[in-house]
Design a protein around this nucleic acid. Structure first.
Length: 421
DNA sequence: TCTGGGGTCCTAGGACCC
DNA sequence: TCTGGGGTCCTAGGACCC
């Protein structure tokens, strides 16, 4: 058996955990730059605030409905996620942290010794008591079915207590017939449309399709999904793997046209990518830089280009990654346009330990100790005090974050003070 | 004025090798 | 009528996830 544990409205729940006055009040969390809604409490969902709603369009509704609006606070969410996962680890030696707010547990043999429903209730109690985050849990024989069970647990809190177990053939069929095809894990917009066109409306309908049709239209991935929904496990718990690509991309607070501004941003994004590379002890051998104008401004000239460059040597030095990124930017930058977004993606990794040296040019060996010291200092004080000269030394650039909550759990000066009465 | 960010896997087709 | 048989690697594009 597998369990899928999913935090309910995770970001909104994190904000609530330390602000009890938000209990029962609708809460929405905004994306970077306070651009659009990326998380909603149940109350906010009930008021009809859609996912992705642009903040400026909904400003009046937020005010009128007394909705609490906050900027995203990833320091808080990341730390709260770790706390939840730490508690979940006690429930099985085999855990896969699937995303910031979801984890699979493998429970082979557990069903013989535990009542899974009670086991789930206990998890829910411990996580809520330990972190203040409410969770839902689905149990089933396969990961895809555990996803389905989780959805049922979340949808019917009164009847299930947010825990649901699919452990019989009757329950499996019933669950599949209840699940709309578009809500199945692995069925996105495109496949949903295509399937509905041939009268496949539920997960159950999908399991009745012929293998060769699925294989032809949805590849081996679709076929695996069919098996999983039939209760034949094809997907196992996966270990944490090093990333194959690392991206740092941002939209700007408004439109910028100067090369100097864009190049500072690209340099900073590159330095961040290099730091992430060092954290997983990889070097990159290629990188991509892209720039976009604002696609929402139909009145302005549109431009969108990216450039991939192969590096002459593998590196994770911020200095070198940054230099190559700006070089690539120079090739695609066009004067006279208003840019809204840029990004750097590093690719084609090799382990730091087995660097292939080249006859003609190599990563500067002096960089490695410099980077090490830089990482130690920046990490120990919790912010980027040491930067490249090509970055915004004066910190002129700021992301719009007007409603940022305190970092309740990761900064000592922002920890909640408790007063004795 | 204002519309997020970061990942994965699979397939087909072309280039190339012996 | 008839023109070998196997491979690998790389890339772009499409689909999906949170």
């Amino acid at each position: 058996m597998f369990a899928l544990i999913d935090c309910n409205n995770f970001y909104a729940s994190c904000e609530r955990a330390f602000q009890p006055t938000l209990k029962n009040r609708p809460v929405v969390v905004l994306s970077n730059n306070d651009g659009c809604v990326i998380a909603r409490s149940n109350e906010a969902k009930a008021l009809g605030i859609p996912m992705g709603a642009p903040a400026f369009e909904y400003k009046e509704i937020f005010e009128k409905q007394n909705i609490f609006v906050c900027s995203s606070n990833y320091a808080l969410y990341g730390d709260m996620s770790n706390r939840v996962m730490t508690i979940l680890r006690d429930y099985s030696p085999e855990i896969e942290i699937y995303s910031i707010d979801e984890a699979f547990l493998k429970l082979t043999g557990f069903e013989e010794h535990f009542n899974l429903y009670e086991y789930g209730k206990d998890m829910r109690y411990k996580v809520t008591k330990g972190t203040g985050i409410p969770i839902s849990i689905g149990f089933a024989e396969t990961k895809a079915l555990a996803k389905v069970a989780n959805k049922i647990a979340k949808k019917f809190p009164d009847r299930t207590g947010n825990v649901y177990v699919i452990d019989t053939e009757e329950k499996r069929i019933k669950a599949l017939k209840w699940t709309r095809i578009g809500d199945v894990w692995g069925i996105g917009r495109k496949h949903c449309k295509r399937l509905e066109a041939i009268n496949v409306f539920t997960a159950y309908d999908f399991t009745q399709l012929k293998d060769d049709w699925i294989q032809r239209c949805m590849s081996i991935v679709g076929l695996r999904l069919k098996r999983e929904l039939q209760g034949i496990s094809c997907l196992d718990i996966e270990d944490v793997k090093d990333k194959q690509n690392i991206a740092t991309t941002r939209s700007f607070d408004s439109n910028y046209k100067e090369f100097a501004f864009i190049s500072e941003r690209v340099s900073t994004f590159a330095a961040t990518c290099a730091e992430k590379l060092r954290r997983q002890k990889s070097c990159c051998n290629a990188l991509m830089v892209f720039i976009h104008t604002n696609g929402h401004r139909k009145d302005l000239e549109q431009y969108s280009r990216n450039m991939v460059i192969k590096l002459p040597f593998s590196t994770n030095s911020s200095i070198e990654v940054s230099r190559f990124a700006v070089l690539a930017l120079k090739k695609i930058f066009k004067e006279g346009l208003y840019y809204k977004k840029a990004g750097v993606i590093v690719m084609d990794f090799t382990p730091e330990s087995v660097t292939q040296t080249s006859l003609f040019s190599n990563s500067n060996p002096k960089h490695s100790p410099v980077m090490k010291v830089m990482d130690i200092i920046n990490h120990s004080i919790g912010c980027t005090k040491i930067k490249l000269a090509s970055q915004d030394i004066k910190r002129t650039w700021k992301m719009r974050q007007e409603k940022l909550s305190p970092r309740f759990t990761t900064r000592i000066e922002e920890v909640i003070k408790v007063k004795a009465v």
